[in-house]
Design a protein around this nucleic acid. Structure first.
Length: 402
RNA sequence: GGAGGGGUGCCGGAGUGGUUAAUCGGAGCAGUCUGUAAAAUUGCCGCCCGUUGGGCUUCGUAGGUUCGAAUCCUACCCCCUCCA
């Protein structure tokens, strides 16, 4: 059994625990805790940023605690106020169902399914009447809700805040009441909502939950938080090669943070990395390769990690051809001396390798298209059967004459 | 109900009758360099074509004025602030 105070359970991957001392006592008491984790079914993909918290959940599950996963089918209709998109179309039930499915497939890559209870918000919110809603709302004041940082920012800068959005924190808080959560999990950006849960539980005569905040992981751009809408994320269900590439393109400055939050590499070793980086006795690239392997091994297994590394070395470092190149059939208009004359534009467009003809023209003009290692400047080419076309940095196409 | 301000490309944000497919910044893409890091540097960044050029469609929506509109007029829709 993990030593609660001496391991890194309460230090690594933890931003803040409220109330910390009480939480420690609770852990020591040997009671099985109910760990609340919510998810928004409008964005079903889980990325490394989410994984930080999920890994923590897993760790606690191993100590015998239970995860209550809440499918936010009602809050999804409102839309997360921290999101930029003002109004999101309401998801249909079947969309939510499908998203939840996808989400859980990914969720249980990290979290233990057997120690998880899945609850839907609709279990309790479907029964709400206007009366219930009003009574819930009457427990809080506008000033209280406006105290939330992003609300007050938006209010000050004259951006709209819908009343429905203001309801969002209340619904999330009520979830804690509904499932009698003893601990809520969330990123530090969830601070307001989680604390409101504490308050509401107290008002409704329950023991207020403790809150376990996990740090926000920086995205691949190195500055903003990892998020799907910003496009700076590494999804845990992405193919190994994609993950490897994305990890390698991370800014060096993120290295130790990533080791700490997304891998099980021991603290001592990470401390060593940090020293080596400071002293410049190690090539950050090598550490990054290690990081990529660690991450991919977690989500795909060691074999895939090795393969992804091989592929990376081959394609991007040695600039050779990848092992597997997707084949596409092309119809040639004529043949001369074993060379087929054909236009690759329609196929590239159809396969989505380029978004438009204009884009392809641009790429051609900029020298981003190669046929068997030689730059070409027109989409009408003379190719062999089996020639390889490279479009941009990462698209490879094997030409098969049909 | 009243007064005022505003809706421009992925985002921010100029532009108030013609040389504007629309200044600039960010993001993105591509070339060189390289460790698919950073920094640097160059180009692209609505769509289509016979591509040193031509065409089409864009500035909340729908009409109108004009040789010509993102820019003027009318109606409508949406957003923000203040007063009640």
């Amino acid at each position: 059994m993990t030593d609660i105070e001496h391991g890194n359970l309460l230090s690594r991957g933890v931003a803040e625990i409220i109330v910390e001392q009480e939480f420690i006592q609770l852990l020591k008491s040997g009671r099985s805790l109910r760990l609340k984790e919510g998810f928004d079914p409008s964005a079903p993909d889980i990325h490394l940023g989410h994984a930080v918290g999920l890994r923590k959940l897993r760790q606690l599950q191993e100590l015998g605690h239970k995860v209550i996963l809440i499918v936010g089918d009602w809050t999804a209709r409102i839309g997360d106020p921290s999101g930029q998109s003002a109004t999101r179309p309401m998801l249909s039930e079947s969309e939510i169902e499908a998203n939840a499915q996808t989400y859980m497939e990914q969720f249980f890559k990290v979290v233990d399914r057997d120690r998880t209870e899945i609850r839907w918000q609709s279990e309790w919110f479907d029964k709400f009447t206007l009366d219930t809603v009003i009574r819930l709302m009457s427990k809080f004041t506008v000033a209280q809700i406006l105290a939330r940082e992003d609300f007050s920012n938006r209010y000050r800068s004259g951006n709209p805040i819908s009343l429905a959005e203001m309801l969002y924190p209340l619904l999330q808080a009520y979830d804690s009441v509904a499932i009698e959560a003893s601990v809520e999990f969330g990123g530090t950006d969830q601070k307001f909502n989680c604390l409101l849960g504490r308050e509401l539980q107290q008002i409704m005569g329950q023991t207020p939950q403790h809150v376990f905040f996990t740090p926000i992981l920086a995205g691949t751009d190195g500055t903003q938080k990892m998020s799907k809408s910003l496009g700076n994320y590494i999804g845990i269900a992405e193919p190994p090669e994609e993950m490897y590439g994305k990890v390698m393109s991370l800014p060096d400055s993120l290295l130790t943070q990533y080791f700490e939050l997304t891998t099980d590499v021991p603290d001592e070793e990470i401390a060593q990395f940090r020293e080596q980086l400071n002293a410049q006795t190690v090539n950050p690239m090598d550490l990054k390769k290690r990081l990529a392997r660690e991450i991919i091994t977690q989500f795909h297994g060691k074999q895939d990690a090795d393969k992804a590394e091989e592929n990376f070395t081959r394609v991007f470092q040695k600039r050779e051809l990848p092992e597997d190149i997707p084949e596409y059939g092309f119809a040639a208009s004529s043949i001369q001396d074993g060379l087929y004359h054909l236009d690759v534009a329609p196929t590239l467009l159809r396969e989505g390798i380029v978004q438009s003809n204009s884009e392809l023209k641009r790429l051609l003009a900029q020298g981003a298209v190669e046929l068997d290692g030689k730059k070409v400047n027109t989409s009408a080419i003379n190719a062999r059967d089996g020639s390889v076309l490279k479009v941009g940095k990462r698209h490879f196409v094997r030409i098969v004459i049909k």
